[in-house]
């Protein structure tokens, strides 16, 4: 089971066990991890599951729709921004940083 570590904007860390195939967003919501709202439930419609990923993470490249939706995040996007509903867990442990706010 991969471990997912969520690092808040203030630096506190929450680590939870995830399941391969689940999204980083689902894993956060199911475990009550703060910092990810995911209002729409994963249909790429709300841009409230914004995270910053590490440079060495090997998630699949984003599709055009995710790229367009990232223009609507509450905290401005950066080069390593992703929507966590689109990030599927594999076997590797991962770390993501959540923005100061999603709304």
């Amino acid at each position: 089971m991969p471990s997912v570590t969520y690092i808040s904007a203030s630096g506190s860390e929450t680590a939870v066990a995830g399941f391969a195939g689940d999204s980083v967003m689902e894993t956060a919501v199911r475990n009550g991890v703060p910092g990810i709202v995911a209002e729409c439930g994963g249909s790429l419609s709300c841009a409230t599951c914004h995270v910053f990923v590490c440079a060495d993470s090997d998630f699949a490249a984003m599709l055009e729709l995710e790229d367009d939706m990232l223009d609507g995040t509450a905290i401005d996007r950066e080069a390593n921004s992703r929507l966590s509903c689109q990030l599927k867990l594999g076997d590797a442990d991962i770390r993501v940083t959540t923005p100061e706010t999603q709304v």
Binding site: S43, S45, T48
Partner: peptide, 18 residues
């Protein structure tokens, strides 16, 4: 407040919400 269900939830979530 944002946990409201006024735009639905899931695959039919309101396309025009934003």
């Amino acid at each position: 407040a944002r946990n409201h269900l006024s735009f639905g939830f899931g695959i039919h979530y309101c396309l025009g919400n934003m």
